[in-house]
Simulated assay, not measured.
Amino acid sequence: MFRNLLRAAFAALASFACLVGAAKAADLPTIRIGVLQYGTVSWELEVMKRLGLAEREGVRFEVVPLALKDAANVALQGGAVDVIVNDWIWVARQRAEGRDFAFAPYSRAIGSVMVRPDSNIRTLADLRGQRMGVAGGALDKSWLLLRAYSRKTIGEDAAKLVKPDFGAPPLLNALMLKGELPAVLNFWHFSARLRAAGMRELLSLDQILQGLGVEGELPMVGWVFREDWATKNRPALEAFLRASAKAKQAMQESDTVWADIRSLTQAEDDATFTALKQGFRAGIPTADVARAERTARSVFRILADEGGTDLVGSATALPAGTFWRAGGR
């Protein structure tokens, strides 16, 4: 009888603790994160959620699923979400046009040039006259950087060197695996899948940047938000950014957290899962924001020369304030 009463008392205390914890969590400020469905950002957010990292830092986040990249931009501009993931080029263009968005680095993982192992392609020049799939369109940043790299290293624009086929990332991968494309410039996670399937990396973004004389790592994508919102909600935002950094640390150091989110990666086999895990880890930024911003300034000039106003709008240089600094500027 006494034992039963004791168990009931402990159960009641546990329930009360859960209710108190839930009440405390409900009192925390909430950040609405606009996330593309099935995007790799959801991997980190799931780790953050499973480990309770945001709540430990004193903030909650709510995921708002979005279908397309443009929908994320519209949702942020319209105030439907507080934060999205985008690149700093978009932020720079917005700031040049008077809109006060800011960027906090999230990942430096970006596309690479992959070739078939049976293609006998060993250098960029070997692609002359051949078809190459390109994801993201004619203004894709990786493609523009490749064009600049090609001109500098072999004296010929990649747009004239190869026959570019612009297309959706999954389609380009499928065509390459069927042998219809000898080379593909695709987003990082699609390149990782190609690597797992036996394709070979010809050029990485780091190699392209080094060939262009750019020093330092480049986090191309990051958390993007309005600066006025960030200023008003600075403690909540910086708590979220700390939680994001801790989630990345866990994903860098622990295979267990990856096992827990394996289903989200949609990896068909162990080789693909390993390639995706390695690709994500390789993309975790290690440089501080000031150094990343200096690298971005150098790359901005290259991209502006290649993409012109269609890419950067009226911006002539990386606008001040594009990169958010924790604790203020």
Rank of each mutant, 00 (worst) to 15 (best):
L318F: 08
R108S: 10
R32L: 10
P219L: 12
F16N: 06
V47S: 12
L172P: 06
R291G: 02
L139W: 14
L237P: 07
T123R: 09
L28F: 02
A250T: 15
A75Q: 08
F166L: 07
M1C: 10
L181Y: 00
A148W: 05
T309E: 13
A230W: 06
S107V: 13
V115D: 00
G39T: 13
F61S: 11
A148I: 07
R128V: 04
F10M: 10
R32W: 10
D157A: 02
A25L: 07
P170M: 10
Q207K: 11
R95A: 00
L264E: 13
A54C: 10
A275C: 07
A72Q: 08
G79D: 06
A320M: 07
E57M: 09
L237W: 04
M132F: 01
R291M: 04
G98F: 00
P105F: 04
F280S: 10
A80S: 15
L311I: 12
E227F: 04
V257T: 14
I84P: 04
I121T: 04
V299R: 02
R7P: 04
R60G: 09
L318P: 01
T322C: 03
R234L: 03
F10D: 06
G213C: 10
I89Q: 01
F240S: 09
D100E: 11
A174P: 04
L276T: 10
A183Y: 00
G34P: 03
R329K: 12
D157Q: 01
R234Y: 05
A22V: 09
V74Y: 08
A125I: 08
A168T: 11
S191E: 11
H189I: 08
P235S: 07
F280L: 15
N173S: 11
N186S: 15
L53M: 08
A92Y: 02
G179M: 03
E293R: 04
I33D: 06
A75K: 07
A96E: 03
A75Y: 02
R95E: 02
A275I: 05
M199E: 13
F16L: 15
A135Q: 14
L185M: 10
D165S: 11
L28P: 07
L51H: 11
L68N: 09
